[in-house]
Simulated assay, not measured.
Amino acid sequence: MEKVMRMASGKGVVMFSKSTCCMCYAVKILFNELGVNLLVHELDHDPEGREMERAIMRMGYSTAVPAVFIAGKLVGSTNEVMALHLSGGLVPLIKPYRVMS
């Protein structure tokens, strides 16, 4: 879990993903459309990916990906990110990390 937290706090908006996950793709598109410079860690391309996946699941989620962190804090998976966006709460959180206005 320490490695996940270290990687998550390395940049403003960080997502742990799998390259074949359609929900991960949807979240990537959302952040792209919002102008966020998203740092993505593809767990299926990392030799320690399975261990990181288990660590993310120990944080309380039934699925490990996508796992979105903003400013080092776990926001959640697809449902939490989309709900936050629909309620108007996502844009203020990502404002410091947007590359376009």
Rank of each mutant, 00 (worst) to 15 (best):
G88A: 14
V75Y: 01
H45A: 07
V4E: 02
M100W: 05
M7C: 08
E2P: 02
V65Y: 03
K95N: 14
T20P: 08
G12V: 00
V36I: 10
M52G: 01
V91D: 15
L30V: 12
I70Q: 04
Y25P: 03
L34D: 09
P96M: 03
I94M: 10
A67L: 05
G12N: 07
G60A: 11
S101M: 09
V81H: 02
L90H: 02
G72K: 01
T63M: 12
D46S: 14
V81G: 05
I56L: 13
A55K: 00
V14Y: 00
A55H: 00
F16Q: 03
Y97F: 15
M82F: 10
A83P: 06
G12F: 01
G60H: 10
E51N: 03
G12C: 10
L84Y: 07
S77R: 08
M100V: 12
Y61C: 12
V81W: 02
H85Q: 04
L93E: 08
R98T: 12
S101L: 08
L86G: 07
K28I: 11
V4I: 12
A83M: 15
M100H: 02
M57H: 01
A26Q: 10
G35W: 05
L38V: 10
C24K: 01
K11F: 08
I70T: 03
M15N: 09
A64C: 15
L43M: 08
I94D: 04
L38Q: 08
A26T: 07
G72H: 01
G10H: 08
S17K: 11
